[in-house]
Design a protein around this nucleic acid. Structure first.
Lengths: 213, 213
DNA sequence: ATAAAAAAGTTAACGGTGTTAAGTTAACAG
DNA sequence: CTGTTAACTTAACACCGTTAACTTTTTTAT
């Protein structure tokens, strides 16, 4: 005895009910546990109902991730209030890493999985919008530091610098997520790996690395 | 009219026939195109035949990757013959990156996908064996450089250094594989990204970075 | 030589997946 | 009171990995 015409609020309520059920499975059991039928079972609806709210599984997962990535971007916006430029860069990397390691499944879906040429169509995050896009914020502060001649003189592309900083933190995090549980590698402490990566990369990029704390 | 008892050579022949079909699909169409049925169709056998040669899909893909990773390790063994320690480290990173970018699907399966605690049970590569394990070779040369006091004095863990070097190259490669086709990021040239990463990380780690070419 | 065993394949099936088509029921609009 | 439409369901399609049961051939043992 299902049908009951719903107010827009009710509709929104069901949407977030689906979203939350999907997130729970996603976070707890990993992406392989997220099936449309499983999500539906969890909230006592049929699987096809999910398709009234999301085009397909991809769109649903994207929506889950979008929500949490907005939280990341928001955290970064706070970090951008810090006084020092280098301080800001360091804090951005640390915040980014904390997010990655505490949301490994999200991170994997967003940054470790090749996707169809453009799922911009799907995501609702406005890329390049500083308010919503973490990379845009990194680019901003790197550009400021570049303009202040904080980087070595022979490095002449601030976008390249930003991407290198990103890749360095991403390297540590993604390796930890993918292989951190492998026992044949005698992993050192993840904190130490993050710290050495950050200090090394900044020492290698900055004109005056001795100014690092 | 199928059954024909086969000599061990014949059996081996079919095994590599399966392996090659799997590799072709894997490399060309990506991992999602590799289904047991699809592989079987390609070589005109039934899907169940594959299970006479491989325990399951995971084992088959692992076998495909193992073969190619032995080639990588072999290339690294050649690089280890280079005279200079730093030269060797640089060449290892470059060779590693070339492999990753020319075998993105292999790379993704091996280094970008979390796995059950230990698929050592599956892989036939002997981890830690310098002959077969690329990471072991990196560790070796890093240890040698460490013993020669080539790294900054405040860095006191050579395993940590090796893992940082690995993560730095992995960061550039995995980001390129996962997001290199995204258009909302204004990617700089991949060669430049690799080069800046390597020079920056070495400048940050080495005691005498000015000695870099 | 004949019977039993093993090998190398096959088809059919199980339980799962994402997704769509068609049907059902309830609320609203005229 | 009759459409229409929204919300939801069941049934189905075409796939998937994997296993069980079966067939046919070859080898081995008596």
């Amino acid at each position: 005895m299902p049908p009951k015409i719903k107010s827009p609020e009710d509709r929104e309520k069901l949407r977030t009910l689906i979203l939350d059920a999907a997130r729970t499975l996603f976070v707890e059991l990993g992406i392989e546990a997220v099936s449309m039928r499983e999500i539906a079972r969890k909230i006592n609806y049929s699987a096809t109902t999910l398709y009234n709210h999301f085009a397909d599984k991809e769109a649903l997962l994207q929506a889950v991730c979008d929500e949490d990535f907005l939280a990341l971007a928001s955290g970064m916006r706070d970090i951008m209030q810090l006084p020092g430029l280098i301080e800001r860069i360091q804090a951005l990397c640390i915040g980014y890493a904390q997010f990655a390691l505490s949301h490994p499944n999200h991170y994997r879906l967003m940054f470790m999985t090749p996707r169809a040429p453009c799922n911009l169509d799907i995501t609702k995050i406005q890329q390049g919008n500083t308010e919503q896009d973490g990379y845009a914020q990194l680019k901003l502060v790197v550009q400021a530091a570049y303009d202040a001649h904080l980087f070595k003189a022979d490095i002449t592309d601030s976008e390249l610098i930003a991407q290198t900083l990103w890749a360095s933190t991403h390297g540590v995090c993604s390796l930890e997520i993918a292989l951190g549980h492998e026992t044949w590698i005698h992993w050192t402490d993840i904190e130490k790996r993050l710290h050495l990566m950050q200090s090394a990369i900044l020492r290698g990029l900055l004109q005056h690395p001795e100014s690092l704390n």
